[in-house]
Amino acid sequence: MRAYLIAAVLLALAIPVRGQAYMTDSGRAEFDSRVPLHTFTGTSDVLVGRISLPDSTVDFYLDLETLDTGIGKRDKDMKKTLETDTYPFAEFFGKLVSPFDPAGGTQPAVVRGTFTIHGHSQALEVTGTLEPTDDGLRLQAAWELNLDDYEIKPPKLLVMKVDPVQQMRISALLLPESESGT
């Protein structure tokens, strides 16, 4: 009888853990890129992410083929540079290392983990905000990505040298996993 009780407790523990994870498959990712005399922004609205509060796990990825800079030819060139057929995703996997109060308002959030793009991984710490809402968790974060760190080499003939430092932003409303349908 005691054995069943322990098992039931373990199962009961497991169920809430699953219930306190939040997911999205429609987050927004943006980057600003600078070339001489010009700045352009690339966007995607299919950022996929999951935050599990009990174990503080943070897992996000983006299919790089979905990035849109507003010029189709530039998109194609960018995807060639990123070698998206070989390395289709930009991804982050890590932990929420700052305290978080699910009952609080907008709170600063720090995540620490590994960011991978173009087949290269680097340790990354990102600061952003987490906001509990009636629907779920709202996330916003920004950081700088240096293309050189990931051996991404854009074409740089003539004057069109791309600044290796890209400004990255993500925002998403993550729904409770049971409601997100994912």
Binding site: Y4, I6, A7, A8, L10, L11, L13, A14, I15, V17, R18, A21, V48, R50, S52, P54, D55, T57, D59, Y61, D63, E65, P88, F89, E91, F93
Partner: peptide, 21 residues
Amino acid sequence: LAIVAVALTWTDATAQMSRQR
């Protein structure tokens, strides 16, 4: 039962999502 419970918890805590194009 214990294995199932631990597996559920463990999977949640450590696994990355599968990447889908």
